[in-house]
């Protein structure tokens, strides 16, 4: 019973944010359309590249289009509008964070459920866009089997958890900078590169690949997308999902600890 009422409090936050996303639907759709323009540019580049050669780094044209659509889709579940770091930076700058500290909610959980609400709306739009793609682009594939689809969904969720905690950690850095804009884009570039959102990791030089496979970023985009494509066997997929789960836990714990440290700074600054 206690647990149920606790979850209810957090779900209320998700609900508010779904409503908020729907209220500001124009800005919301704009960020999605902007991502779509980016996707089109990459689509044409791949199309031109595959007009020269049948496979690149083990990817066929159909593999690559599917990779492009799925990876961009996942990368945009957590779009600009959803950013937890933007939210935290704002709370820090305006001092609103003090209000959150007195609320009977855990700060990390509260932020997570907020993001969950907005991402829910984002996923809804992404599914619509994907349905259209499926009709227009025959090379865009669906997962091999229901089992792969299930593993893909689990993997995407774990990737989302990693992304949340990592962004939360970046957000806390706004305790030291005024403008989160620069921080956001530096973070985004690093994440996009190591997560496989720009290009599948197989395309990178071996030395970089070796680093990328142990870092948490590949959990966000690369692992779920490859599971979707069926590039991993079932066994490998489960191993990769365990890798994600491990990082998700470690990052969540770090986020909680870092938040406690950062809060001390607020208390010291307070009058």
């Amino acid at each position: 019973m206690v647990l149920k009422s606790k979850i209810k409090k957090y779900l209320a936050l998700s609900k508010i944010n779904i409503q908020r996303a729907l209220t500001y639907r124009i800005s919301f759709l704009t960020s999605l359309l902007a991502a779509l323009i980016q996707l089109f540019v990459m689509f044409y580049i791949w199309k031109a590249a595959f007009s020269e050669k049948i496979t690149l780094a083990g990817f066929t044209y159909s593999d690559m289009l599917t990779y492009l659509f799925v990876s961009q889709g996942i990368n945009n579940i957590y779009g600009w509008y959803t950013t937890v770091e933007r939210n935290i930076a704002y709370k820090i700058r305006t001092g609103d964070i003090a209000l959150d500290l007195v609320k009977p909610l855990r700060f990390n959980f509260a932020r997570f459920f907020e993001v969950l609400g907005i991402s829910f709306v984002q996923v809804f739009f992404i599914i619509i866009i994907f349905t259209v793609f499926k009709i227009l682009v025959p090379e865009f594939r669906t997962p091999k089997s229901d089992l792969y689809l299930f593993l893909f969904l689990v993997s995407t969720f774990l990737g989302f958890l990693c992304m949340f905690s990592l962004s939360f950690l970046v957000g806390l850095m706004s305790f030291w900078t005024l403008n989160y804009w620069g921080l956001y884009y530096v973070k985004k570039s690093i994440f996009d590169f190591f997560s496989g959102a720009i290009i599948p990791l197989q395309f990178l030089p071996l030395s970089i690949q070796k680093i990328a496979v142990i870092l948490p970023f590949k959990s966000i985009v690369f692992i779920p997308t490859l599971i979707y494509l069926g590039k991993f066997t079932i066994h490998e997929s489960i191993f990769q999902i365990l890798f994600q789960a491990l990082w998700a836990t470690a990052l969540w714990i770090s986020a909680v600890l870092m938040f406690k440290l950062a809060i001390r700074k607020v208390v010291i600054h307070g009058g």
């Binding site: 590249a49 020269e52 900078t177 804009w181 620069g182 290009i199």
Partner: peptide, 24 residues
């Protein structure tokens, strides 16, 4: 950070092109 942000973004775009031309 602002300058770095733009620098990183453009480097990323170039890596994308470079990685493709690495194969073709």
């Amino acid at each position: 950070l602002g300058i770095l942000a733009n620098l990183f973004q453009s480097i990323l775009g170039l890596i994308f092109i470079w990685a493709i031309f690495n194969r073709i």
